[in-house]
């Protein structure tokens, strides 16, 4: 390794780096005793991609997401983010890499206002290891609190909830609460967004708004993984889809191809219509 001057990567090297996938899973296994919730899944998510993760209930989607964010356990295989193997890292360390995720159930703090809830997401850029150091530094810098606040307001704007900022989560509709959660994710300026059924329980109008938001974020270059049951949303929003069944990756590709894949359709018993491609691509 050169020790003198750091060499600027050449243009081809930069291009190659930009083309390298952001997230790579190799042979990931999540075992619950003898049962494999995730069974040797390998996949790669490209930078700026909006990927869908589909599969019937119990197919391992949430387990996979949990393992990827290291909040859940990883029984085997490796996880790599931007070239960094993080399989052995703790969840909070991984989060600091730039992961933000939402969960299947709404997890907001009841005794914090919407703004405060979202600020927690923004805070994450300030919390360091040792608690005492954090505490002393938070006492010392009033400006940081303002920065968190600003980032939180910006995120709330993005989901269109700026006027709800002083409300308490329990006074909001379920769909609105979910949007607050998404704002919390966005407030941390993530590099990878993991959304677990973000539009479950939303009206179709809200779902469309979220879909539009996700597209905007994609246009800004944010890499996203979206777990969803709503196949039409998946179809309209994603670049690439991964299909799981019984913990195994059974298909991947464009959403229409995956939806028409006989193995996938067999897994989703009852899917009758073929998903047609839009005429405008």
């Amino acid at each position: 390794m050169t020790t003198a001057t750091a060499q600027r990567p050449s243009a081809p090297e930069q291009a190659a780096a930009a083309a390298a996938p952001l997230l790579v899973l190799r042979d990931v296994v999540v075992a619950y005793g003898a049962v494999l919730g995730v069974d040797h899944v390998s996949l790669a998510v490209g930078r700026g991609q909006l990927c869908g993760l589909i599969g019937p209930n119990g197919s391992g989607k949430s387990s996979l997401l949990a393992a990827v964010s290291r909040v859940g356990k990883l029984s085997g295989g490796s996880l790599e983010f931007d070239g960094q193997d993080y399989s052995a890292w703790s969840a909070h360390r991984v989060a600091r890499l730039g992961f933000a995720r939402s969960f299947q159930t709404v997890r907001l703090q009841e005794d914090l206002t919407v703004l405060e809830n979202v600020m927690v997401g923004a805070d994450k850029t300030r919390l360091s290891g040792a608690t005492v150091a954090t505490w002393l530094s938070s006492l010392a810098s009033r400006g940081d609190e303002a920065k968190s606040r600003a980032a939180a307001l910006e995120a709330l704007d993005q989901v269109g909830l700026a006027d709800m900022r002083d409300r308490f989560p329990t006074t909001l509709s379920y769909g609105t609460q979910r949007r607050v959660e998404i704002a919390r994710c966005l407030a941390s300026k993530p590099r990878l967004l993991l959304l677990d059924e973000p539009t479950a329980g939303m009206s179709s109008a809200e779902t469309d708004e979220i879909a539009a938001l996700l597209m905007r974020l994609r246009a800004e270059g944010l890499t996203q993984i979206l777990v969803a049951h709503d196949l039409s949303m998946i179809h309209s929003v994603t670049d690439h889809v991964f299909a799981l069944n019984f913990g195994k990756l059974v298909a991947q590709g464009r959403s229409t191809d995956v939806a028409n894949d006989p193995v996938v359709r067999a897994a989703y018993i009852g899917v009758v219509e073929t998903v047609e491609e839009d005429s405008d691509g």
Binding site: V71, S90, H92, F103, K124, A130, S188
Partner: peptide
């Protein structure tokens, strides 16, 4: 687990 996913070092706290 939510705290962990928000980069909060729960063990330390």
């Amino acid at each position: 687990s939510l705290a962990e996913s928000l980069a909060i070092d729960t063990g330390s706290l």
